[in-house]
């Protein structure tokens, strides 16, 4: 029975693992930390799995557990803390770096997103995953109006980081 449960879970996780990888990508800055967080999210998902009733989609359920682990439960290991700044250097955007090529813009954007705080990252993550404001508000536990207001502020903040 346990084996069957385990097998089902692993199959589902294997299929939807990209969601966890994306959470890790947003909240960690190096390979080891990424794997560390991936493992912790997997453990939390597995612990909660017996209560998963299937009335929501497995992927939707993963978003919640994944973000909750990243924002609240996960204790950053020492090596993660020492590499807190993206790519080892504190990011300072200079206007001349922001050139017109899309690739360069994206690189800068990813760096800018890494500079946001944990809650802002969570909102950006859900936004990038194409979640509507109802789902964003339910996942975070804030009202839809506040989610919208915050999202607009984040957009402004990103703009300021990109064009100081």
């Amino acid at each position: 029975m346990k084996n069957e449960l385990e097998q089902n879970f692993v199959e589902l996780l294997e299929k939807h693992q990209n969601i966890i990888h994306k959470v890790c990508r947003l909240y960690t800055n190096n390979y080891d930390a990424h794997n560390d967080l991936f493992q912790e999210i997997t453990i939390q998902l597995w612990k909660a799995y017996p209560k998963f009733r299937g009335d929501s989609k497995f992927s939707t359920w993963m978003y919640r557990v994944g973000l909750n682990t990243a924002i609240t439960l996960y204790r950053k290991s020492k090596r993660t803390i020492t590499t807190q700044d993206f790519e080892g250097v504190s990011f300072k955007m200079k206007s001349e770096e922001y050139d017109d090529t899309e690739e360069q813009q994206l690189k800068v954007l990813y760096k800018a997103v890494h500079q946001l705080n944990d809650i802002e990252k969570a909102l950006v993550f859900l936004y990038l995953e194409d979640k509507d404001y109802r789902e964003i508000s339910e996942t975070m536990g804030i009202s839809e109006v506040n989610a919208r207001v915050k999202m607009n502020r984040i957009k402004k903040k990103l703009r300021t980081i990109l064009n100081p």
């Binding site: 692993v10 294997e14 990508r25 991936f38 493992q39 912790e40 439960l73 996960y74």
Partner: peptide, 20 residues
């Protein structure tokens, strides 16, 4: 990230959580 296989995921289920 490299895609993990079921074989990579399975051992993780028995690892100890380090949550707060």
């Amino acid at each position: 990230h490299d895609k993990l296989s079921a074989k990579d995921i399975l051992p993780m289920l028995n690892k100890k959580s380090s949550s707060i």
